[in-house]
Amino acid sequence: MSENLLDKVTSESGQAIALCYQCRKCSAGCPMVEEFDFPPNMVMRMVQLGMKDELLKSKAIWMCVSCETCGSRCPNEIRIAPVMDALRAQCLNEGITPADPVTVALHTSFIESIKTFGRVHEATMLMTYKWKSKNFTSDLDVGLKLFLKGKIPIMPKKSKNMAKIKEIFQEAGK
């Protein structure tokens, strides 16, 4: 049990989580609920109850794609996507191994592409992702088709603002 979880997540997400009364409209419309270990309405109840360990180790927080369907339909106007984001941040800040490390690998590969080029370059980003996730074989055929159709250029297009971008990342890292 963690008494502070509700306050912490409420403040970081800016959402009035305490108002959730379990109507389950969020879970009824969630496109990802089949991949979740706890449906969104249960995630909300677990935050209210301070079930920190179970939440930070859950798959649900990583499978949410922030489509904002639940938040658009909630009768109390609670948006769950920011709640999920606050839980993801807490999981990484506390050094807990994410239940779905592959999604984390994808996000960090994306950020590295921006750090390097200022823009996203799909070919290098996906190679970094493959390396980080150790998931070498999936989608090779699709990648090849995209390449042959000219949708994945080999050479990256670099932004001319790289000095400024480096500075921003350095400042943020402090």
Binding site: A81, P82, A86, I114, R119, S159, K160, I168
Partner: peptide
Amino acid sequence: KDWTCCGATFPLVNDYHIAMSGPTR
């Protein structure tokens, strides 16, 4: 001219500012 990536994801937690520096620029 010389635009950079928008970040492709809007940051949802209140204290995550770096992801908004790109689109704000």
